[in-house]
């Protein structure tokens, strides 16, 4: 039991990194990137290519992949998302569905459909573990991943709260029109946020490739996990995303104790329970209408928009 809880918390760090980019994009750019999971897979594939194709060390591959993913996010915001956003509510959704399909099939064409893993390239890290008092074993890889997740999310939090760019991001997220009147260039802020979001997706993909396998078509499942963590934790708050990720990890880990098949289902159940609670409290707030309900739903714990 205790061991399952520890494993669940550690797994939560991975889900939090996966979800943080999705949350950031929606909180700042007001844009739901349905290709987020596919971008995570792309990050994994690029890192895998650096390791398998170019023969680089995993650490170097990661150091090269993350900036590359950031640049890709910046470019996609500039070339694709910005234009899609001008088309109203539906166009960005269709655009990212299409982008996801293109990414999946593009990766299939380039890298083949085999499952791939970084597990073989990280030495004994994939199976080594620490024993802590009470006879509990903590896998070193999940431990390091959790630590990295905390550090990375902490760094993004500091970036958003302490730096000039972060303040511009928060101003734009609160009121982009008022921010523009203060001289904040929303396009630059959006591109910066997209760069961070896609780099985070890439990191999550690399995590996945280290702890398990990836295939070009793994993206949609990752998107679902990211969505679940975001909804459980509340959009726009990194702390919420971390809590959401840990809740999802715990649910899956504890669910697996009941039966291996119940693992994912338990996560979905927690997600549905939180969703139902949010919907009901949204309806109870008497704001009515599906728009208001969705707003209540996603901004329940909004850090970017302040007190709600």
């Amino acid at each position: 039991m205790l061991e399952a809880i520890v494993q669940g918390v550690l797994l939560g760090g991975y889900y939090a990194v996966l979800a943080a980019g999705l949350s950031l994009m929606f909180g700042v750019v007001r844009f739901i990137n349905l290709a987020h999971g596919d971008m995570a897979v792309l990050g994994a594939m690029i890192a895998l290519w650096f390791v398998q194709g170019a023969g680089l060390h995993v650490a170097i591959a990661i150091a090269l992949t993350l900036p590359l993913m950031g640049a890709l996010g910046w470019l996609m915001q500039r070339m694709i998302f910005e234009r899609a956003l001008r088309g109203g509510f539906l166009i960005p959704i269709l655009t990212t569905i299409g982008l996801g399909a293109a990414l999946q099939n593009g990766m299939f064409g380039l890298f083949g459909s085999d499952t791939k893993s970084l597990g073989a390239y990280i030495g004994n890290l994939s199976w080594a573990s620490w024993e802590i008092p009470g006879g509990i074993f903590i896998g070193q890889l999940p431990g390091y991943m959790f630590l990295t997740a905390i550090l990375v999310l902490g760094a993004v939090h500091v970036l958003l709260t302490r730096t000039a760019f972060g303040r511009a991001v928060r101003a734009t997220a609160t009121d982009s029109e008022a921010a523009a009147l203060c001289g904040v260039d929303a396009r630059r802020v959006h591109r910066g946020a997209a760069a961070i979001a896609v780099a985070l997706a890439g990191l999550a993909g690399i995590f996945l490739a280290m702890r398990a396998q990836v295939t070009p078509f793994a993206g949609p499942m990752l998107l679902i996990f990211a969505f679940e963590a975001v909804v459980i934790g509340g959009i726009g708050s990194l702390r919420g995303t971390l809590i959401g990720g840990i809740a999802l990890g715990l649910a899956q880990s504890l669910g697996a104790m009941i039966s291996p098949q119940f693992s994912l289902l338990a996560g979905h159940c927690v997600f549905l329970a939180v969703l139902a609670y949010r919907l009901m409290s949204g309806a109870a707030a008497g704001r009515g209408g599906w728009r208001a309900t969705i707003t209540a739903l996603v901004f329940h714990k909004s850090m970017l928009r302040g007190k709600s």
Binding site: R167, A168, R170, A171, D175, A179, C182, G183, V184, L304
Partner: peptide, 17 residues
């Protein structure tokens, strides 16, 4: 800009404007 302090509001303006 709710969620930010008075100083941060003015600072964003000074920085960007």
């Amino acid at each position: 800009f709710l969620g930010m302090t008075v100083f941060e509001n003015v600072y964003v303006s000074a920085m960007s404007g």
